[in-house]
Nucleic acid binder design. Structure first.
Lengths: 179, 179
DNA sequence: AGAGTCATGTAACGCGTTACATGATTGT
DNA sequence: ACAATCATGTAACGCGTTACATGACTCT
C-alpha cells in the first residue's frame, strides 16, 4: 500500500483536493503513516492519467486553481483489489531506539536527555489525542485508529519510565569498568 | 540514521562481516529496523572507500571470501558525531492499520480474518521474545530493546482484543444502512 | 509584524527493495 | 530429498523526501 493507493482509498470516502488529502494523513493517519506534498501531487497526476480518478478544476483568485478529485469506477475497483491483498509487514524505523542501542558510547546526561525528550514528545501526542477524542461526530474507524495510537504511546511511555535505568545504568557501569 | 550509519555503529561493538551485521539487525533490531543485503553490502563498500572502516579478506573453500570489517578511528569519530544529532521522528508504515481505515469497504469475515492474522503474528513475536529473554549473557541494552518490542506487541494485542468491535461493528452497521 | 492557512507543483537526489547470480555444507 | 545456513555481490527500479518556486489572505 503505497501513498498512491492510500490517496485512492481516501477518495473512496469523499472527493478531495491534494491539500485536503494531506490533512487526512495528518488528522487520521499521522500515528502510522505520513505523506508529503511531493508524493501526493504526483500520485494524483499519475492516477488521473491511469483513469482511476478524475479532476475538476475550480478557479480561485490569488491562488492556484483548486483541483477537486473524485474516484472513477475503475479506480474503485483497483482499490477493492488492493484491499484483498494481504497487508505487508509494518515498516518501522526508530532512530531513537537505534541510538539507545549505543548508549554505552554516550555520557549519561545525553542518554537521559534523549529519553526525557522522547517522553515529552509522547506526552504531547497523548495530550493532542485526548483533546480530539472528546469530539462527538468522530466516526468509529477514526476512533479506532486514534485509540490505537493512544495505546501505543501510553505503552511506550510506561515502558520508558520503568526501564530507562537499563540503559542509564549500563552507561554508568561501562564507565566504571573503564576506570 | 540510515543503514550505513547503523552498520558503522554495529562495528563499534565488534568486527564483523556483512553477513553477521545482517544477523545483528535480525536479532537485536528487528522490532524497529530492518535491512537487506542489498543495502548492507553497498554500505560497507562505500564506507571502506570513505575510510570509515577497513576490511580484511579471509579465504574460504567453496564460499566467497569472508570479509571482516573493522572500524577506523575516522569512522569512530563519524559515528560519535551521528550520536550527537537529534534523532528524527520515527517512521512508521502500517498497511494493516491503513486497511483498517477502510473496513467499511470489506466484508466482516475479511476484517475478522485480518485482525486474527495480525494477532497470530503478534503472539508469534511475543513467544519468540519470551524464549530468548531467559538467556543469561544478554547485555542490558539488548534486554531493553527486546523488552521494548515486547511491551509494544503486548499493548497492540490487548488493544486489538478490546477494540476490534469498533471496526467490526462499523462494517455491520454500514451494511445494515445500505439495506 | 509574523505566523499560519490555503493551494499547487517540479526537480534532484538518495535510499532501499527486489530480484537475480553462485554454490558448498549441514541439519531434518 | 529439502530447507536452512553461510557468504558475497550487482542492477534496475520505484518510492519518497527535500528543497525550491509562487502568492494572497487571515488571525494574533
Amino acid at each position: 500500500m503505497d501513498i498512491r493507493t492510500l490517496c485512492l482509498g481516501i477518495l473512496t470516502m469523499r472527493d478531495a483536493t491534494g491539500y485536503e488529502i494531506k490533512k487526512v494523513f495528518e488528522d487520521d493517519l499521522s500515528h502510522f503513516y505520513e505523506a508529503s506534498f511531493g508524493s501526493i501531487y504526483p500520485a494524483l497526476n499519475r492516477m488521473t492519467e491511469d483513469g482511476w480518478i478524475a479532476c475538476k478544476a475550480e478557479a480561485q483568485d490569488g491562488r492556484p486553481d483548486k483541483k477537486i478529485y473524485s474516484i472513477t469506477s475503475a479506480g474503485r475497483m483497483a482499490f477493492m483489489d488492493a484491499l484483498q491483498k494481504k497487508p505487508r509487514k509494518d515498516r518501522i524505523r526508530s532512530e531513537f531506539l537505534a541510538m539507545m542501542m549505543f548508549s554505552d558510547l554516550m555520557v549519561p546526561s545525553r542518554i537521559a536527555g534523549l529519553i526525557d525528550e522522547r517522553l515529552a514528545g509522547l506526552n504531547a501526542h497523548l495530550k493532542e489525542i485526548d483533546t480530539c477524542m472528546d469530539e462527538a461526530a468522530t466516526p468509529n474507524v477514526v476512533r479506532f485508529l486514534r485509540g490505537f495510537g493512544q495505546a501505543m504511546y501510553r505503552a511506550e511511555r510506561d515502558y520508558l519510565e520503568e526501564n530507562r535505568h537499563l540503559v542509564e545504568a549500563q552507561a554508568l557501569m561501562s564507565r566504571a569498568a573503564a576506570d
